[in-house]
Design a protein around this nucleic acid. Sequence first.
DNA 1: GCCCAGGGATGCG
DNA 2: CGCATCCATGGG
Length: 271
Amino acid sequence: MKKYEYYNLKDFNVIQTLDCGQIFRYHIDENVANVCSKDKFAILTTYEDKIIIESEDIDYFKHFFDLERDYGIIKTELKKDSMLKPAIEYGYGIRILNNDVYEMIVSFIISANNNIGRIKRSIDWLCKKFGKDYKTHHAFPTLSEMKTAKVEDFVQAGLGYRASQLYETIQYLTDKMIEDLHCLTYDEQRAFLVSLKGIGEKVMNCVMLFGLGIKSVFPVDTWINKVYNNLIGVNVTDRKFITRELTTKYKNLSGYAQQYFFYYYRDNKLK
DNA sequence: GCCCAGGGATGCG
DNA sequence: CGCATCCATGGG
């Protein structure tokens, strides 16, 4: 494997970035993190003054971890918001990953009304069953590989009632649809994603954010719902309303704000 | 046994 | 539109 070393890298913490719910295929052991995306694999080791990335495709993971972007500007702007400031100081090294759209579609369909532990187990099961074995890791199953799965396989993966939803979407999707998705307008992308079985507002926004790199969206899940009520001092359950409020407030930095909030309040076991 | 998890689909008004 | 109800499954 090739190796690349980053010295005194600002605004990047591997554990924070991996542990804030935007990726499910990773494993952390002390200062060493194994990360998978598509068929690719990397090992990140964190030391006092440097981070070492080992991979067969270093360039992929430089972009994957969004390392070419200056987060100082983003954090300075968002820290002007007093509610967000402590969350940013807590998750100072979070970066929004540039992950694969298709992998995000599958992963976040599975995530619906589910918990992270079970989501990770289900996805790992699918990778072992249908993904290529690279010895160091299993690749995420390609669309054509995933199309060979039966509904029973998805049930066995522990997807519950999401099994039939994912099955229908997998059978419907083509590689061309996935490729063309990048060229659509913002509204067309949203419409396409929501038309897929198992994808509603929240999952769609996660795919937009983590798979298409669109930072003007604000996925609202149960945690963000709790955070919103707690910070504003209300008891709202209308997530579409909360989404509108927060995207209006944070505009093109909504996606970043969402991750800082999510990591801070979920880690601190809000209430 | 109950409640919750990075919600969505469906039906009804 | 908004709203209620149902949906599998494992862990706390």
